[in-house]
């Protein structure tokens, strides 16, 4: 028992103060939001792979989550429209207590692991009242990762139907948004929004936990643009 207390005091409280304080700095090589200035055309955040050997120049900005699929297409004409808070009625219900259910629909496991990280002390989702629950009946929304493989399609739909109204759907990762690197395969879909309506799109491969956290908090109105 004493050993536990000793270790606890040595380890301290590790939760970052974001969003009240600035998020910790990300390393220089981190590939965040692409920069459009000086380039023609547009970049679709849901379809790129965030790999270093492409023509894209990346910034250090981790906030990339949006409420609409179209908002993921960056272009020079307008500023990126980050995720907006839910409407007033939903905010009243979910603002302080949001229970989510995760469905892995063919992902490679990177998105799942970085989602799990949000429950650890550093990011500590529970302080916002957000928690991952065991049953879809207990949940208010699903977080889907992966390109929705053919074999997972029915399980995903059943889980979606088991969630009581009102409910949310969050697409996490490039594969969930557009099928990602697997979109050519007949075994994968072209994006979650072709199957069920989506309320929040979080791009990345995998999205950095700060991107996910930022997206969730914007959805709950705890961060405004």
């Amino acid at each position: 028992m004493l050993k536990i207390l000793k270790t606890r005091f040595k380890q301290g409280c590790r939760t970052i103060l974001f969003p009240k304080a600035k998020a910790p700095d990300l390393p220089q090589r981190y590939r965040g939001r692409p920069i459009i200035a000086g380039q023609n055309g547009s970049i679709d955040l849901g379809k790129i792979f965030f790999n270093p050997d492409s023509d894209i120049v990346y910034s250090n900005d981790y906030s990339m989550a949006t409420s609409k699929r179209e908002d993921l297409v960056l272009s020079q004409e307008r500023e990126m429209a980050l995720a907006r808070a839910l409407n007033e009625r939903m905010l009243k219900i979910f603002g302080r207590s949001l229970k989510l259910r995760q469905v892995s629909a063919g992902g490679c496991n990177a998105c799942e692991l970085d989602l799990n990280v949000l429950n650890t002390p550093v990011f500590d989702l529970s302080r916002f009242g957000i928690q991952f629950v065991a049953s879809p009946r207990h949940a208010d929304g699903i977080v889907v990762t992966g390109p929705v493989s053919r074999n997972m399609r029915e399980a995903l739909l059943k889980t979606y139907e088991a969630i009581p109204e009102p409910k949310l759907v969050i697409a996490l990762g490039g594969c969930a948004i557009s099928g990602g690197i697997f979109s050519d395969s007949p075994q994968a879909s072209h994006g979650l929004d072709t199957i069920i309506p989506v309320d929040l799109f979080i791009p990345g491969c995998p999205p950095h936990p700060l991107t996910t956290l930022d997206g969730l908090l914007r959805l709950l109105g705890r961060i405004s643009s």
């Binding site: 892995s104 063919g106 992902g107 992966g146 390109p147 493989s149 053919r150 074999n151 997972m152 399980a155 697997f182 050519d184 395969s185 007949p186 075994q187 994968a188």
Partner: peptide, 11 residues
């Protein structure tokens, strides 16, 4: 298993 099958080898 088989739920995650995406057909990587043909790709």
């Amino acid at each position: 298993l088989g739920y995650q099958h995406k057909g990587i080898e043909p790709l």
